[in-house]
Amino acid sequence: MKKGSDLSRSIWITWERQTRNRSASKYLGVPLWEITHGQSSALVRYVVSSYTTFKLIMRRKPHYVFAQNPSVVLSVLVLACSKLLRFSLIVDAHNTGIHYEGRFNRLVNLLNRIIIRNSNFIIVTNEHMANVVSSKGGKPLILPDPLPVLPASKSASVNGFIRSKTDKKLTAFCITSWGEDEPIEALMAAAEMFTNSINFYFTGNYRKAIFKISAEALPENVHLLGFVDEEVYFSLLSECNFTIDLTTRADCLVCGAYESVSAGKPVLLSDTKPQRAYFYKGAVFCSTTCGGIQSGLNEMLKDLDQNQESIKLLKAEILEREELRRDGFICSITGP
């Protein structure tokens, strides 16, 4: 089958709603299909999503399919279809699509290795992850998250969120999913040191926390919002003074950092080599201990005005780089 020199016969499939899928597929001009099935049980979701995915591929007859890993089930399914129907498979591998540390980790990592070795390309966000993919026998392509286009801001009103004007406190928007790699307990302990100057608002399902949370014991400036929909999420992002998105993973470029740059908000990040290399203006870096986070917050407060200006410069520079590298990235997939 002769393939075109562009991605006109391509689809991007994901089994969740996530900013990277939307920004990357739009950046490459690839139609995105978000296949989700609400609150169904895991088994029902897998069966229905698999059937919907197979029907989509058979109907569209693509030359190129992009699939997100996770889900490893999605990636295995599309890999099998690629061998049967002879299309090129490009897997967008997040960190857990390279190395998984949760339940059934041996099985999932075995499947990850099969996916990496047998896909045409594996997309990762940074050079370190590209080296890991190469060591596992895969063909890596590096694509940091394209900056997302954020929706127009509306005033946020959720679980008592109020931009602190009367008490003159700053607002820190903590972008959290309550995963095991997030040092949330240390962040909360550090937040208590800033009760007079910063209100901290945490997103995500805090019932997933791996430590016990007592509402009565929370610092008075820590507010748990729970799950918020996209409209409220981006409103909170636009209204805050700065954001916080921390991880203990040494090789991760966090999605919240890209969103913060797009919104023009300074961001407090974990001090890792990949993040320092990419977010080199308008960001403050810290260790993920309570003391390290406290020091990072002090640095953020000291240079907040300068960081707000610097993050805008970073946004312009990233957008310029994105324009310059798009055609080359596509040619890496399709050939000259």
Rank of each mutant, 00 (worst) to 15 (best):
M58I: 14
R106T: 15
S295I: 14
F161E: 08
V254G: 00
G4F: 12
S155Y: 12
F329C: 02
L319Y: 03
Y100E: 12
E323P: 01
L74V: 08
P336Q: 15
L111D: 08
F194L: 11
A80S: 15
N298S: 04
S8N: 14
M300R: 03
E16W: 13
Y233T: 07
Y278R: 14
V72F: 06
D6G: 09
V73K: 02
L77N: 03
N95Y: 08
S40F: 12
N131K: 14
V76I: 15
H94A: 09
A316K: 12
D6E: 13
E220P: 02
G226M: 06
L324V: 13
S235D: 04
H223S: 04
G291R: 15
L74K: 06
R113F: 08
N95I: 14
R20W: 07
M188H: 01
K55G: 02
E16I: 13
R9W: 09
K265R: 13
K154R: 10
S157D: 11
Q275W: 07
G138M: 07
K212W: 04
I311Y: 03
H99P: 07
S5F: 14
E299N: 07
S155A: 10
A80M: 15
E230G: 09
F194N: 04
I123Y: 03
C252N: 15
R22C: 03
Y280P: 00
L28T: 13
S119L: 09
G29C: 07
S260L: 06
H128K: 14
L74T: 09
T176K: 00
S155Q: 13
V267Q: 09
I115R: 03
V254S: 03
D305H: 07
N112C: 08
T53V: 08
A257V: 10
W178R: 01
D271A: 15
T243M: 01
E220I: 15
I35A: 01
K61I: 11
I244K: 02
I293K: 00
H223W: 05
G226L: 11
E192Y: 04
G226R: 10
V72M: 05
G256Y: 07
Y201I: 10
K169N: 06
S287H: 05
C255V: 15
T19G: 00
V48S: 05
A277P: 00
V232A: 01
I98Q: 06
P140K: 04
Q39C: 11
D251F: 02
N21D: 06
V47P: 00
V284H: 01
S164P: 00
K312Q: 12
L141G: 01
T288C: 02
K273F: 10
L268N: 05
T243E: 02
S295C: 07
A257E: 11
Q18K: 10
L187D: 05
R207G: 04
L89I: 15
S287C: 06
E220V: 14
V44R: 04
L225Q: 04
V232S: 01
I11N: 01
N118A: 09
P219N: 07
Y206P: 00
R106E: 13
I198P: 01
V132D: 05
Y206G: 02
F329H: 11
Q68W: 05
T272F: 03
F54P: 00
K165H: 14
N95F: 10
N118T: 14
S41C: 06
